[in-house]
């Protein structure tokens, strides 16, 4: 199946059909869903877990959970890809807590820690399910935050860091990090909803 000519909205419908198929017990739907979304989900897991073997384990667990819980998916749970991303992320976070992973973050302390964010921002990806407009709005709003706020959110979201880990990576007091996170979230919400 190729999705490259379709808009994110069409792709979202495809994913909904596939989830519906999974809920009916159709393995072919499950396989298609895996083919379409696993590269994106695997990238997220590798980023957060830093270890491929863990990411592979988490991906398996997440898809097994998708297969079992497909019937419970409704639009109330968000866009299908968001739902899949969340299942993967929570699975990865569980794994991190269980394994007490030591944090090592290759680019985290960099002043241009967000460089990768802009690097790919304009690249069009064939199997991308998220609209460019949404990604652009988020980037614009992230740009409005101060550096501490933005980096705190980034380290939590992409690297699974705790408040304490963020504090050590950014060399900032814990209280400051907690307030960066909260102000960052408030600012993001305000900006995204004003748009």
């Amino acid at each position: 199946m190729t999705l490259s000519a379709q808009t994110p909205l069409d792709k979202t419908r495809v994913l909904m059909d596939l989830l519906h198929g999974c809920a009916q017990g159709q393995q072919s739907s499950f396989q298609k869903l895996y083919q379409l979304t696993s590269p994106q989900l695997f990238a997220i897991l590798v980023r957060i877990l830093k270890r491929r073997d863990w990411a592979e384990e988490a991906l398996q667990d997440a898809f097994l959970s998708v297969w079992r819980n497909a019937a419970s998916y409704t639009a109330q749970k968000g866009a299908p890809l968001t739902w899949l991303v969340s299942i993967c992320r929570y699975r990865a976070l569980d794994l991190l807590r269980r394994e007490h992973r030591e944090v090592y973050l290759e680019s985290s302390g960099d002043e241009d820690g967000d460089a990768w964010l802009t690097e790919f921002a304009d690249q069009s990806q064939a199997d991308d399910f998220i609209s460019h407009a949404e990604a652009r709005a988020l980037k614009r709003c992230l740009d409005e935050l101060n550096e501490g706020q933005r980096n705190s959110l980034r380290l939590a979201y992409f690297d699974g860091c705790s408040h304490e880990e963020i504090a050590s990576v950014l060399r900032a007091p814990l209280g400051t990090v907690k307030s960066w996170v909260r102000r960052g979230l408030q600012g993001l919400k305000h900006c995204l909803e004003a748009a």
């Binding site: 990238a43 592979e56 866009a79 921002a121 990806q125 199997d127 990604a135 988020l138």
Partner: peptide
Amino acid sequence: WEGKLAAWNRNLKPLAPPDSVW
């Protein structure tokens, strides 16, 4: 929040998992 932040993932380059996972 899941929806708002999910757009951030657009910037991650997709990475195909090894066939062994499937």
